[in-house]
Amino acid sequence: MNSSILKSILLKSKENKDIISVWQYNGDKSSLVGYVSDIAEEHVNFQLYTHMVKVMV
């Protein structure tokens, strides 16, 4: 992973167990809320607390 704002946010979440939200634009337009448990070159492991779905009324 190149040094970037995203990488610094992910590393901070991993080191301090800071809660972050990851917005998913595909499909159901939902958000994953939790913290990063591991980072590798090809993937990020995420400890999930909740899955939020945007409801359109």
Score class of each variant (00 low, 15 high):
N2R: 13
N2Y: 14
S4N: 15
S4K: 07
S4F: 03
I5R: 13
I5Q: 11
K7L: 12
S8Q: 14
S8R: 15
I9D: 08
I9A: 14
L10P: 00
L10I: 01
L10G: 00
L10Y: 00
L11I: 13
K12A: 09
K12L: 06
K14F: 07
K17L: 09
K17D: 12
K17C: 07
I19V: 14
I19D: 05
I20R: 00
S21P: 01
V22F: 04
W23P: 05
Y25A: 06
Y25I: 12
G27F: 11
D28G: 04
K29L: 05
K29W: 04
K29Y: 06
S30T: 04
S31V: 15
S31A: 07
L32S: 01
V33S: 02
V33D: 02
G34C: 10
G34E: 08
Y35Q: 09
V36P: 01
S37I: 09
S37Q: 11
D38M: 04
D38A: 10
I39R: 01
I39P: 04
A40S: 15
E41W: 03
E42I: 03
E42S: 11
V44K: 00
V44Y: 00
N45I: 02
L48T: 11
Y49F: 09
Y49Q: 08
Y49A: 08
H51P: 03
H51N: 11
M56D: 08
